[in-house]
Amino acid sequence: MKIFDKENKISSLVSTNSNLLPVINRFGIQLGFKEKTIAEICAEKNVNPDFFLAIVNTYTNENYFPEEELLEFSPLLLIDYLKTTHKYYNEYVLPKIERLLDAVMKTCRENCSSLKMISTFYQKFKVELHIHLTQEDEKVFPYIIDLYHNRRLTEGKTIGAYEDEHTSVEEKLSDLKNLAIKYLEPTYDSNAMNEFLQTLFQFEKDLYDHARIEDLILVKQVMRIEESLKTNAAR
């Protein structure tokens, strides 16, 4: 693992960690990089390079935590990014998982009741995730945008109060995986199941990193704004 900097080639980023492909897409960056460095491509696409690096490094290194000076970019940038990610989950990943699960179900010939339970459980997870994403899109992000523009604290509202529920969604996804791996009778086609599970694994990692970006970067930035407003108000 390494920490990427502005002088690294963007192609080396993707070769080191192919999971970054959808991440860089969210910045409007697509393949065909030639020999361009991160700094060059960011300038070309009008992306704040510090912001870009904070995201890709947090994504690549489990234990990475951007330092203060790397958090100077506007939280509005981050919110745009997170919204795009939510859209990617809702419009691409979840339908894909569902399609793969359907494909597994279709291969089941007998004793399919356990598999149906897995499917019901998946639906439950999906609903919960959807509520969580909607809550962020409709409540948390507007709160931050308002705070940023108007520089005014609202009685009883803080980012701390919104900070919640990642864990329960993550718990369910992990349970779903474990149930399928450990307790499900193999009455299905293995290839179909493997594909479904691999996508779940990938999504689990993605959600985990997504949550880390929210907790480590966004929440931190917002707390800093709240703190400074509180100090000003006290004066």
């Binding site: 459980f121 369910k172 779903l176 149930l179």
Partner: peptide, 13 residues
Amino acid sequence: IKSISGLTVYAIM
């Protein structure tokens, strides 16, 4: 398995 729904599915399976 941590969630209540997960344990429920386990119990049935």
